Computed example of a mutant assay.
Amino acid sequence: MIHAPIFSRHALSRRSALKGLAGGVALTGLGSAGLSNALAAATPPHLPATVIASSPRYLCNAIAATRNGTVFLGSPRWETMDDTPSVFRVSSNGTLKPFPGGTWNQWKHGADPANAFLMVNGLHIFSDDTLWVVDQGIDPITKTTVAGGQKLVQFDPQSGKVLQILRWGEDILPPGATMNDLRIAGDLMFITDSGLGGIIVHNMSSGTTVRLLSEHPLLRATYTKPMVGRDGHILRDKDGKRPLVHSDMLEITADRKWFYFSTPIGPLRRLPTSALLDSSLTDSQRAEKIETVMDMPTMMGTAIDTLDNFYFADAERGQIMVLTPEKEKLVLFEDARLVDGDALFITANRQMLVPIPQTERLPANNAGVNALKPPFLSLSFPLPKTLNGHPLGNVVSSL
């Protein structure tokens, strides 16, 4: 996922494509994907994807769907988007409705953050079909975290009932920490902190939570490599300051053996999941087990399948890529509309959903110039069974 560019000391956000509250959203059937050869091969064929949401008003950087096909979109309060309701559910007639409604979607500066969305960075649906929302709790005016605002919220996707809210103190979220994304493996929840760099592990059965590898250099980005968008566009604000996003993406293999993580500029790294769960290890000992998998281009969103194929949105080339377990990079999908395609979501029926927030066109990433080009789209395309003879798997929903 990436990663809003409007905060100098906080993590950026990522994901999706919306329509204004008064309007509807184009929602059609799912179309065919553009398949292609290996990265080194010729340009892949341009095959059409389906636009599942189109918005003239709100960009968004998060998308997820239930098993019955109900789509949810997450919209952060980035520049020019301060009035967004933050989370939407796409209705059967294609319109967007704020979810779950009421105070959750109506937060204003100075209001109570307890039961309201402030800065939604991501959302996800796992095998139990409930919706998890990542709220970074950042006030877009003060650009600081509001006390009690940073939280994870679990909803019943049908009724909108709040099932639980998770908040932590400074032992887990010290000043400057910013939750970015999460994955669930059985009773365990894994969360990345892109504000300082770190991994949070929460045991949903016991209620215990630990913070690991906090501010470790292998989880932090540096200015030696810029974030790059389409056509060599280097993300920077009007003063030339570039965004710096620490541990962001995370994926866990279907057998739970490996925990993959990365900053948006790479490299992709991994460590045994067992190292995160072994309380006898120190962080220094855990760090010794970290492996560098591969250097990567600027990535916005990722996913993984049951055959350990690692999918990522290549912001530099406007492509969705597959990194195979054998470390071969294959072009899965290419489309001129993929301007910073963000968080990837594989549905139960093997559709790939990708939101397009146009992150690099925001003023804070475009030398102060607002170059956003509505409408904002979310695309869908089906995963083939094979790509260049390499088998592709199914969704890893709850591991």
Rank of each mutant, 00 (worst) to 15 (best):
C60D: 08
M189T: 05
L39F: 15
V354L: 14
P174K: 01
P355N: 13
T144W: 03
W258H: 13
F376E: 09
W104F: 02
K225G: 05
G169H: 05
T386E: 09
I265E: 12
T222Y: 02
T66S: 10
T84S: 06
G393A: 04
Q154A: 03
L166Q: 09
F155E: 00
K257F: 00
T70H: 10
P98N: 00
F126K: 10
L213T: 02
N388D: 07
T224L: 15
Q150H: 08
R286D: 07
H390S: 07
P45D: 07
M227D: 12
V162F: 00
G240P: 12
M81C: 03
S86A: 13
H390W: 12
P391T: 12
T302F: 11
N68C: 03
R236G: 02
N105Y: 06
A364E: 04
T324E: 04
S32G: 15
A11L: 05
P325K: 15
I125A: 09
G341C: 08
R317V: 04
S205F: 05
T192Y: 09
L277D: 02
P85G: 03
I346M: 02
W258I: 13
A367F: 10
V87I: 13
G69K: 05
P226V: 13
P267D: 07
I52M: 09
F190Y: 15
K241W: 04
N37K: 12
W107G: 00
G393V: 03
T209C: 10
N203V: 06
V354F: 13
L59V: 03
G266K: 13
S279M: 07
L21E: 02
T224V: 05
R230L: 10
L276V: 09
D314P: 10
D135N: 12
I356E: 11
E360L: 04
K327Q: 08
I2C: 10
G341V: 12
I138H: 04
R14H: 12
F72G: 02
K161C: 01
G393F: 07
D340M: 14
L281C: 06
S397A: 15
G137T: 03
K238G: 04
L173A: 11
P264F: 14
L131A: 07
I346V: 11
S91P: 07
G389T: 08
S284E: 15
R337K: 13
P384W: 15
P382N: 11
F376I: 02
R317L: 11
